[in-house]
Each structure stands twice: as C-alpha cells, then as structure tokens.
Design a protein around this nucleic acid. Structure first.
Length: 425
RNA sequence: GGAGAGGUGGCCGAGCGGUCGAAGGCGCUUGCCUGCUAAGCAAGUGUGGGGACUACCCCACCGAGGGUUCGAAUCCCUCCCUCUCCGCCA
C-alpha cells in the first residue's frame, strides 16, 4: 500500500507511476476527493467530541458537588451531542473504508531506475552467465524424457488432481528433495540466511500484507470453511512473520530462507506453458526474504539477486538476469530482476527466479516498523523477496541441460552428495 | 470439540464506570555527582490522525469489532489469540 500522504503531496508522481504500468490513473483523483471529505468530517467529529468531553467532565464535577439538577441539564445536552457524533462517525467510517479499498488496490510506485516499457518484450537484459550447451544429438524436452524414463507421470497426476500436476518417482522424486536441501544449505551456510519453516495455510490478513489480497483473490486457493488460504509462495508467511511488530534497527537486515510448496490457481494462464511441469498448480520453491532499511534496500536487492544467482552457478546452469520494465512489474514491486535459466525444450531462457524490492509497500500493509536509531522515530521497514530458486523449474533445467544421448542424465557435481549417485537412472 | 483463566505502553505489572494516556518497576535519553565502571540523585521518555503548519491546540487508541452510558481500559455481546485441564489425533 502506498502512503495516502504520497497521494496528497505527489499526486502527479503516483499517476505517472500508474500510467507507466499501463494502468488507469483516475483512482488518484477519486481518492483525493474522498480524502478531502474525510478530513472535513474529522474536523467536525473532533470538535463535537471535544464538546462532549467537556460536558462529561462537567457532569462529574456537578455530581460531586451535589448539583444534581444542573447535572441532568448537561447530560441532556451531551446526549444530543452523542447523536450528532454518531451520525458523523458513520459517515467518516464510510469514507475511510472507501479510501482503504482503493488504496489496497493501487500497485507500488515504480522506482525511478526501472526501464520504461509497454510489455515484457521491453525488459532489459542485464547480464548473462554460462553458455547454452551445444548438443550433438536432439535433446528431449522433460515432458518427453521424464515419462519415457518412467520418472515423471503426468497421466496419473491428471487422474488424481487434474491438469497442471505432476507425479514423480524414485530418482526424480529424490532430485526434487536434493534440490531443496542443496539450496537451503547454500543460503544458510554460504549466505547466512536464517532457515524458517512456515505454515502453508494463512489468514486473509496475511495474504493482504503481501498484496495477494484483495486484488488477486481469484489467483489463490481458498479453504472456504475457514476462510483461509493456501500460500502461493513462502514470501507470504515470511514477510508477514514480523507484522505488527517493532524491530530493532540493529537487528536489520533480517534475512529469511524457507522451503515451501506453492499453490496457484493460474487463473487466466490457460494457453501458457501447458506441457510438462513448468507451470503447475503446486510446485516447490526455496524463497528468500529480507527485512531491511530504506537506506539500504536497493543495494540489498543486488545482494539478494546475487544470492539467487549463486545457486544457478553452482548447478552450472546457463542463465541471464533481466530487469523488468514498468509494464511487467508485479503489484507490490518497486523494482524487479528476473533470473532466467536456459531450457533446451524452449530453446530459450525461462524465468526461474524473481527478485523484488517492495520498498515499504508490504510493510505498511503489515505494519512492520523499526525504531530508527538516528532520531528514535518509528519507520516502515523495506521488504525484499526472491526465489532462491524455484525447485520444479530447476529440476526441469537439470534434466534437460544434463541429459545424455542415451537418455540418462548426469547429476550436477554439487547435487551428487545429496543424490548419492552420479547418473540418473 | 468441552470446561476454565487471560490478552494493558519497548518489557514486567496495577487499575475493574468519571480528574486514566493510564500507578509502580525495568529499560532508554538528558543533566548532576563520580579516578574509570557500577551505584546514587533529578528530569524526560507511547502511537496514529486532524488543525495552527515555529516551542501550540484538539481527537482517537488499554487484542479486534459491535453495544449500554452524558461518560468505558473498566459493564454486555461477537470474533481472534494465549495458557491450564478433559476429549480426539499425525
């Protein structure tokens, strides 16, 4: 959520940011008008309440000195005031609700460094690492190779759960688990993250903190009986972990890493990535989250990206780093880098990690603050999140990039201790 | 799921219808004192919102939301959470 003060003081900037994202900016003027009304009512309510408080005080005094008749008179007046206050308060809460509803649906303000663009085609490649392997045979896509090896089973997954699910057996199932452990170890041991184990079902409030709600409710799986949601990423519980808390500046940055399954309805992506396990309703991910200060957050984002890159480097998977343009930026993000891994089946790079600085957008929604040492003030923290990295897509990348002409798959060196083998199967 | 207890400021903890934004303690800040440190003494120390927009005034906030009342941290209702016991259970 952006600060209503920013809308008041820098309406132009907010409108510009919305337009850069290809969004309508009319909402800004609507909010400004509601805000004007709201403040007018607040003035009125405050004055009325002041009068009533004074009257109540008088009642206490009069009763103490035994002037009961006089007290009754004042009580009658105060009762009148109470009714007026009630009407004004009702109007006030109506405006406040309207403003909050709109505010919760406005995306974060793009950082000035974000390249302008109209679609994902305008994203900017920042750097490349590794060279896509040149095969001396026709490499197979994982959706062909996996079932052929009887290690991936899309048919039975569909029987159990419908489309966009996968069943895996033996070496592939173990590879999934190996990747999870490998990545958690890299981030905890090499990068110093704190490992967190999180709930996969969260409250509406928690989903609102990170920005999944209210705008994208149709994207989430919801358990109706309890109005509780399956997390679409561990970012949700990790960011909200410290909601409504006051942090110590000395403790910042807090850096969390968590493995979790991710559940996404993928509403509206009907034609996309229909083959294989690239786009699933359920997938595993190791997620990185930082809670940091406004002064450091953009610098920290570079660190976060580099931490995610380390995983791909260690796996020796060719990838590139792309900076998202304004039109492709996510709802809560002020700036985002995507990591894209080379996939032979796509003959292209495919997103495997997305690293964003959400600035104070989520912190304001979740009320995550810290006490600033320099002046003792409470300020909203900045939150960063990034995949470190997506497990399912990493598995696909390993399978496709490490395949041999005989259909077997070499196990990347760093995974061998986790797999207890050098080749699959 | 059943029975009971409870949720108060950065923390601990009083208050149970009016002068309570909230005693007391701890912590923190400043000043004094002091070879250093510790102790001691004194003062200060919540957040948010409105308006004047400087040192000022007002309003709200004692888990959340409703209600009773001239007036609620204090009474009533609903919800959330924590703890204890019972039941069930991976």
């Amino acid at each position: 959520m952006i600060d209503i003060k920013t809308i008041r003081d820098q309406a132009g900037l907010v409108k510009q940011s919305l337009r850069k994202r290809n969004e309508n900016d009319d909402v800004v003027d609507v909010i400004l008008e509601f805000d004007k009304q709201r403040r007018k009512i607040i003035e009125a309510v405050n004055a009325l309440r002041g009068q009533r408080n004074a009257a109540s005080k008088k009642v206490a005094q009069l009763k103490a000195s035994g002037e009961n008749e006089e007290a009754e008179k004042v009580i009658a007046q105060a009762k009148q005031l109470g009714q007026q206050i009630a009407t004004e308060e009702k109007k006030l809460s109506e405006y406040e609700e309207k403003i909050m509803e709109l505010l919760l649906r406005i995306p974060n303000i793009c950082h000035e460094s974000v390249p302008f663009g109209n679609s994902e085609d305008d994203n900017v490649e920042v750097r490349k690492w590794g060279k896509p392997r040149v095969f001396d045979f026709e490499p197979q896509a994982h959706w062909d190779l996996g079932p052929k090896l009887k290690l991936m089973d899309f048919e039975r997954a569909a029987k159990l759960s419908g489309s966009r699910f996968t069943v895996m057996y033996s070496c592939f199932a173990r590879l999934e688990r190996a990747l999870i452990n490998f990545m958690l170890d890299v981030h905890t041991k090499q990068h110093g993250y704190t490992e967190v184990w999180v709930p996969h079902l969260v409250k509406r409030e928690t989903m609102t903190t990170t920005g999944q709600l209210p705008k994208f409710e149709e994207e989430a799986y919801r358990i109706e009986s309890d109005d509780i949601f399956l997390i679409p990423t561990a970012e949700v519980p990790l960011v909200a972990l410290r909601s409504n808390e006051i942090l110590q500046e000395a403790d910042l940055p807090l850096r969390y890493v968590a493995y979790s399954p991710c559940y996404r309805r993928e509403a509206g992506s009907y034609g996309k990535d229909v083959r294989g396990m690239i786009r699933q309703h359920q997938f595993d991910k190791v997620e990185l989250v930082w809670l940091t200060t406004p002064e450091k957050s953009f610098e920290d984002l570079e660190r976060l990206v580099s931490d995610a890159e380390t995983v791909l480097k260690l796996l020796e998977l060719p990838y590139r780093v792309v900076e998202l343009c304004t039109a492709d930026l996510g709802f809560g993000a002020a700036k985002t880098y995507d990591l894209e891994v080379w996939l032979p089946s796509y003959n292209n790079y495919k997103e495997i990690s997305s690293c964003s600085n959400d600035t104070d957008f989520q912190a304001r929604r979740g009320n995550i603050r810290y006490r600033r040492r320099s002046d003792g003030k409470l300020v909203f923290a900045h939150t960063l999140n990034g995949s470190g990295v997506a497990i399912g897509r990493a598995l696909v990348a390993v399978v496709e990039n490490y395949q041999r002409s005989d259909g077997r798959i070499d196990v990347p060196k760093v995974l061998q201790p986790y797999m207890n083998c050098e080749v699959i199967p």
